[in-house]
Structure formats: structure tokens, C-alpha cells
Simulated scan of single mutants.
Amino acid sequence: MNVLLTGGAGYIGTHTAVELLQAGHEVVVVDSLVNSHEEALRRVERITGRTLTFHRADCTDPEAMRAVFDRHDIDAVIHLAGLKAVGESVQQPLRYYRNNLNALLTLCETMDAAGVRDLVLSSSATVYGDPDRMPITEDTRLSTTNPYGSSKLFSEQILDDLATSDPRWNIISLRYFNPIGAHASGLIGEDPQGVPNNLFPYIAQVASGRRERLSVFGDDYDTPDGTGVRDYLHVVDLANGHLAAVDHLADAPGHRVYNLGTGQGTSVMEGLRAFERATGSPIPYEVVGRRPGDIAVCYADPSAAARDLGWKAVLTIDDACRDGWRWQSANPGGFAG
């Protein structure tokens, strides 16, 4: 199968490209390189021993996207491209709405014109906002708390309406939780630009000496150790979730949604201790006040993905910390270094 992977040079995109290539698919990557590096794609080819095709283009550019579809016989699309920093989205809501929604609209219009109607969307657990029950199932009430999450929820609504209007579309949206870790080779991993927005890249940079200490935002939540609990998912498991979705697109027409998570929560302190086990050294931290908008507990019920897609997470938090530390140690300056 020829798979178009938008945002394929990014963190999740590169790991997904590896799994697609190793499964025998052909991969065409479209990426603007705004938050990624072309070197990451060369590393993908090194890991797999296979080549991919890369187009530096923006998914919001109709002419550029038409050129990609004119050049390649695409069978299915995995749409990962988009702006993704929650905090930044609060400061720049119009930029996030314009970019993320326009990219999806342009992509779908181009796909439809080319007769390609198999699509996997990168959605997010942020569509659940502050959930009213645990674990989170796909029918949990949807209520976002930031523009990034809203852009994902609006994207899902667009795809609902598209699939309703034309039954030829096969669409799966993957609502995934907190991807962490790196490929076991140490050749690709998360390479945040500037100050990391997520917990584990920050821990890794503290462990490597790039930052002084980790700030733990609150230790007075109603959780076993007082720190926030999240569902941390190894990025390779997540990549395989996209592969499973592509393989099951034809099972049922319309738009389906699935949670991708481990089904269990890990607290900030548990994550910190797991990373210390990976490094063999203590990691300095300080407890500070809660961040506005943070919730106490959030973890998935991934049973629908297991039932319908044959997918489940198999890698552990210790696997993720080991692989993440291998990546950080071998690439202290990221891909640019």
C-alpha cells in the first residue's frame, strides 16, 4: 500500500514511518519542517534499510498538495501534521485554528478530487477536556479546555459530516494519550524545540544536564502520591496503532474513533522514578504550585481498539524511559546536533 504520511518528519511521524516501512508499505512524507528535521527521515531509512519519498510542503497549500497526489498513486493517508503545543494554543488560538483546520480541509478536498478516501486522523485525548469518569471510553463526554484540543474536536466533527455526506469515505480518528520514549535504536526520538512542553522530554534534559531541575506542578492532588496521573504510551506502540488503523480502514465505512493508551495511569513521581532507574542516577526536582487547567487523573480504556483493530500497548513505562534515555544520551542536541 502507498501511504501518505503528513507530518512524517516529526516525533510520531518518524516512528510511524518506521513501522509502515517494516510492514512492507511504501511511504510518502509531506512535512513543512517547521517543527521537525529532514535528518530524522534519513534516520528512518537507516533503521529500516528502505527508502521513502519526501516532499517539503505545507498541508494548507492546495497547489502543493495537488502536486503530491498528481505525482503519486496514494492508497491511504495518515494525517499527523499540525501545531500541537497546548500552552502555545492558548496564547495563539487563531494560529492554531487556522493551521490545523485549514490543513485538514485542504487535505480532504485534495483527497476527494484524487479519489482517495481512506484516512487516519491524529486526534487527541484533549477532546475529553476534564473527563467526568475514569477510565475514559470513546463515549465519554467531549469538552475541551484549550484551543489545541478544540481544533482536534472540530476536526473530528468535520470528518463526521464528511463521512455522513459521502459513504465512500473510510475514516478512523485515533485519540491518543501521552506518547513517550523513542525507537530502541536510539536513532530517532522526541526533539522538542525550545523548552519542552511535556514531562518526559523535560526529565530527559534534566538528566542530561541541559536543565537544572524538574518542576513538579502540585503534590496535593487526590492521587496515591499527590502528583498528577496520566496514561503514558510508548511511541512505538502508538506507531503500531496507526499501522493497525490503516489495515482496518476498509472494515466499515464512515468515521470511527478509538482511544490509544495503556489503560493504566502513572503519576509524575512514578515516572520520575522510572527515569531514574533508566539513568542509574537521581534526578533533581522541586514541587511548585499547580498549573491552571491541570486535572488530577486521566487514563484510557483502550478495549475498543483491541476489539476492532487488534491493537494493544505492549511496552512498559520502564521500556519507554530506557529508550528515551538512550535517544537523549546519543543525541544531546537533538537532530540538529
Rank of each mutant, 00 (worst) to 15 (best):
L83Q: 10
V116P: 02
N102S: 14
L105F: 06
L83W: 09
L121Y: 12
G87V: 05
T106I: 07
L104M: 03
V127L: 06
P131F: 03
E109L: 08
A103F: 00
T126V: 10
A125N: 15
S123R: 01
G87Q: 13
N99Y: 11
G115F: 09
P131Q: 01
S89R: 04
L83I: 08
K84F: 14
P131K: 06
Q91K: 14
N100V: 01
L121H: 08
L119V: 10
L119N: 05
D118Y: 06
E109M: 00
Q92G: 02
V127Y: 00
M111T: 01
Q92R: 14
S89A: 06
A113P: 07
N102I: 02
T126K: 09
P131C: 03
E109Y: 03
G115E: 11
D132I: 11
R98A: 01
L101V: 07
E109N: 11
L119H: 06
K84V: 14
S123I: 02
K84R: 15
D112T: 10
L83R: 13
L105K: 06
N102V: 05
N102A: 11
V116N: 00
V116G: 06
R133L: 09
L105P: 01
G115H: 09
T106L: 02
R98V: 04
P93V: 08
A103H: 03
Y97V: 03
R133I: 08
S89N: 02
L107S: 04
A85N: 09
D112Y: 11
V86E: 01
T106H: 07
N99M: 09
T110S: 12
G87C: 06
L107Y: 05
L83M: 13
T126L: 10
S122T: 15
S122Y: 06
V90H: 13
N102D: 15
S124P: 09
R95P: 07
V116F: 07
T126W: 02
G129V: 04
L83S: 08
Q92N: 13
